[in-house]
Amino acid sequence: MKKLMLGLTVLSTLLVASQLTFAQSSASANVTVQAKVIAALSITPTSATLNFGEVAQGTSPAILPGSASSIAFTVAGEPNHAATLTYNATATLNGPNGSTPLTFTASVIGNTTNSTSGAASLSSGTSITLSGSGNYYIWLGGSLGSILASQTTGQYSGALTITVSY
């Protein structure tokens, strides 16, 4: 910027000194400045909780993504745009004092239509493409592995984060 200012000063000085006895030559070019504004991205869950309910010791409970107990997410954004999906592959569920935590392993499927039919399994880091109406549908389920016969009874809870970005 400073350079520009100096340049202008010099030019004007020259003009004054020589009494404008010379022909002036100038040219200009026009350029376009552009930016594209796209729709804001959002991810909205149908429920804030993935609840396994009561699980007995010695069992291997699982919630199938797309089933009534799973959480459905609606992603909205720019039509036909790609986005990156990331989520914790596992989450730790902590229980009563002295208990061994449970490990939740996420299972995620997704589709451009709001139907689990044909939905693809999605690992974290996958690129998804929003539909022509700017949507993508994701279902989150998962499993708790094999619960030990000696697992301390009581309530266990944890949190899982799912992110979309572009």
Binding site: L50, Q57, L93, S165
Partner: peptide, 18 residues
Amino acid sequence: CQTKTSTVSVLASVVQSI
């Protein structure tokens, strides 16, 4: 870039086996 995040809770209640 824009990043949007959703955090959900995961709950389970371990009960005695039958």
